[in-house]
Amino acid sequence: MALEPNALSSEQEAWLQEAVTHTSSGLNPHHEQLEFLGDAVLRLTASEFIAAAYPKMPVGERSSLRAQLVSDRWLAELGAILEIERWWRIGPKASSDSTAAATIRAELSEALIGAVYRIAGTAAVQHWLTPHWTRSAEAVLTDPHRGNSKSALQEWSQGQGLGLPTYSSNEISQRHGDPRRFHCTVTLPPNLKAEGWGSSRRDAEQQAARTVLDQLEGD
């Protein structure tokens, strides 16, 4: 992170501590206000990164790429890279729920972005996140489906004259952050069918669509 710990004031250190204090801990102040700020900062700085790195990219493609670079999944991966659990303060119930870990990483990572912005501004956020965005953007742009398997499957099915895929999703668990909370089945005529799981309905549908695409690529 683009901050020198020894150069921080007590107030700035308090912001960092607030960012890694989850609401489940029962402590105040907690991460929510910084998470709200971090959400806005993340979208702005990600937009600036894309404009600088890919100046000729059409606006529609920029929006799709930005959606990947500000997603909860991306934030959770950032939290894992930072090993944010070494510093977080969470409640006993949350700490015993392994399925909630990714969600908590995402929330606290976004709060940490808000804290860095408060301490040093957007330039520091850009300096910190650019290497992570660079790796993620390259991965997305080299993916033939650009991280959106549902859209890719729809384009393929319409090109084959098969109409639109049919998705059927059910909530299996009510545990927040459970990676198997939602189950989805996608079908396409004449006999294409696949399943997917995810912590959200959207994630389950994306996984199911990706499974179909993998089947098609394997044929």
Score class of each variant (00 low, 15 high):
143 D>T: 07
62 R>G: 07
76 A>E: 01
191 N>P: 00
42 L>S: 09
183 H>R: 13
200 S>C: 09
140 V>Q: 00
117 Y>S: 08
150 K>G: 01
101 A>I: 13
5 P>R: 06
208 A>C: 11
108 L>F: 03
2 A>V: 04
51 A>D: 05
74 W>K: 04
55 P>N: 08
63 S>T: 13
120 A>H: 08
8 L>W: 07
73 R>M: 01
213 L>S: 15
83 E>F: 03
44 L>F: 02
91 G>F: 02
183 H>W: 04
77 E>A: 11
174 Q>P: 00
99 T>V: 12
1 M>H: 04
199 S>N: 13
166 T>V: 14
172 I>H: 10
125 V>R: 06
55 P>M: 08
104 I>C: 02
204 A>I: 12
57 M>Q: 13
57 M>S: 09
128 W>R: 05
108 L>V: 09
35 E>A: 14
25 S>E: 06
132 H>M: 15
145 H>R: 10
143 D>L: 05
131 P>F: 01
46 A>Q: 05
110 E>P: 01
91 G>Q: 05
177 G>V: 09
88 W>T: 02
209 A>Q: 07
35 E>K: 15
144 P>Q: 12
128 W>M: 13
58 P>M: 10
195 E>H: 12
55 P>F: 08
36 F>Q: 08
4 E>W: 05
183 H>Q: 12
36 F>D: 04
6 N>L: 08
147 G>M: 05
75 L>P: 05
153 L>H: 11
63 S>A: 10
63 S>K: 08
166 T>D: 13
11 E>A: 15
62 R>N: 02
176 H>W: 10
219 D>M: 13
106 A>H: 09
173 S>L: 10
33 Q>M: 07
133 W>S: 00
158 Q>T: 06
87 W>D: 10
203 D>R: 15
160 Q>P: 06
133 W>K: 04
205 E>D: 14
110 E>Y: 02
219 D>P: 11
157 S>P: 12
147 G>R: 07
15 W>P: 02
205 E>R: 15
75 L>Y: 09
43 R>C: 02
157 S>F: 06
127 H>C: 00
98 S>I: 05
150 K>H: 07
111 A>E: 00
118 R>F: 02
116 V>M: 13
16 L>Y: 08
38 G>P: 04
22 H>R: 05
152 A>R: 07
25 S>T: 02
202 R>Q: 15
116 V>E: 12
59 V>P: 01
39 D>G: 04
108 L>K: 12
31 H>G: 06
77 E>V: 01
97 D>V: 02
85 E>G: 06
201 R>Y: 04
17 Q>Y: 07
89 R>D: 03
74 W>S: 03
208 A>L: 00
123 A>P: 00
196 G>S: 13
74 W>D: 00
37 L>E: 03
67 A>H: 10
18 E>C: 11
27 L>M: 03
88 W>S: 10
97 D>N: 11
45 T>Y: 01
97 D>G: 03
174 Q>I: 00
53 A>E: 14
101 A>F: 08
34 L>W: 05
30 H>F: 03
4 E>Q: 09
179 P>L: 13
212 V>F: 14
116 V>W: 00
107 E>N: 11
149 S>C: 14
147 G>N: 07
26 G>R: 01
52 A>G: 06
219 D>T: 15
196 G>L: 11
52 A>H: 07
57 M>E: 07
180 R>Q: 13
